[in-house]
Computed example of a mutant assay.
Amino acid sequence: MLKTILAGLTGLIALLFTTLAVADDAHYKITTGPERGTYIQIGQDLSKWVAQPAGIALDVLPSKGSAENVQRMRYEPGVKLALVQSDVYQAYVDMANSGNADAGTTIRPLRLIMPLYDEEIYFVVRNDSPMKTINEIKDKTISVGLIGSGTAQSATTLYRLMFNQPIPEQNAQHLSNEDALAALIVKKIDVAIIVAGQPAKLFTDMNPDLLRQIRFLRVDPNAPETARAKQTYFPATIRVSSYPNWLKEDVPTWTVKAFLVTYDYNLRDTVGNLNRFADSLCTNFDNLQEHGHPKWKQVKLDLPALGKGWKYYPPVERHLRACMAQRTAMRANGGTAAPQAAAANTQKVTGRPCSDQERLLLLCGK
């Protein structure tokens, strides 16, 4: 009889603790990217393999891309994490340093958790296009991506670097990736610029008949435009192995870095939850590389030195460095570095016209 009562009490206590644990689970959000982009898959991996084991319910939100992600993390309730391209983050830092108060207000409280991987920049043309290399896109009609997307920042920055001038307004189209490819195929534009980590679902899910109508432009290593682009972007290769039923040879292109970003939180519960997230990220890193998107295999569990205006989130940085040291010690008994970052937010610019750069970074009214 006593054993039965004790067993019953034990069961009730276990049920109570389970209920309390569920009730105490944090419910956070991460902003990512388009539905068929790489960012949303990375977010889903973080939700499943990192947040869940840490007792955090992490909703994965689609978005236009990096600039919108920073804004939503900064101002939307519950959004604690965002995926951001390095050139977008750097653009905010540069604008803040040049005296833009709204950019400064946005970027200063943002913090990095860690660098992730390289995202390839695709320059897509029709198969019948006379263009072969990226430096031939000058004065063509180009889809540069939606305003608020990282693609728009990368496309316009690359063009300005290569040709020492902005894309003429009449030549720039702000289309989603899917709409850009459709417009390309029906000859409404000449080039679609798309930023996505390979293999990109946008292409792997595409109808094979439509795929045969498009191809990628290549980097010409000898072009002077290529030397100028190297000031900000890094060489990359779109591999046949990423699109084996389509590509016949590797295609040299450019790449931009992706970062996991948060805010400089100081509330005890939020700090504690993000520390658990960091511990889980380190503990489950091998699961991410084994079961997550192929891009996780390029990620190093490493916190390299950052450029001026970029800062890690101190509580998470301490946890990650401690865990990384422990992993190194364990390996000794039985990475390398990455780059820099970018981000910010939005208010309307008043009393003067809005610049193209401010418009892309959502720092003014449209």
Rank of each mutant, 00 (worst) to 15 (best):
D45F: 02
Q170M: 01
L288R: 01
A337R: 13
D209V: 14
A338R: 02
Q41V: 07
D59P: 02
Y28P: 02
K188W: 05
Q85T: 15
L361V: 09
N100K: 08
I189Y: 01
L303I: 06
D220Q: 09
L158S: 05
L184E: 03
A101C: 00
L267F: 03
A342Q: 07
Q347F: 10
E35F: 10
N207R: 08
S280V: 06
V251W: 00
R215N: 03
T151K: 08
L146M: 12
E358C: 09
Q326C: 11
L12D: 00
G8D: 05
A227C: 06
S66A: 11
G43W: 00
V261C: 01
H27N: 11
W310I: 11
T10Y: 10
Q41Y: 01
A200P: 11
P34S: 12
K132P: 05
W254Q: 02
Y92R: 00
V349C: 08
F163W: 06
I194S: 04
A54H: 00
Q71A: 07
V271W: 06
L202W: 02
A101F: 05
P208S: 09
I40M: 05
L181Y: 08
G78M: 09
G104R: 10
I107G: 00
A344R: 12
N345I: 09
E225N: 04
P109K: 06
A51V: 00
V125T: 15
T253E: 03
M330R: 12
R212I: 01
A26I: 03
G145I: 01
L362A: 07
K80E: 13
C282I: 09
L247V: 10
A322T: 15
Q41H: 09
R228I: 02
Q71K: 12
L2V: 14
D205M: 11
D302R: 10
M1T: 14
G65Y: 00
V125N: 02
Q71L: 13
V251R: 04
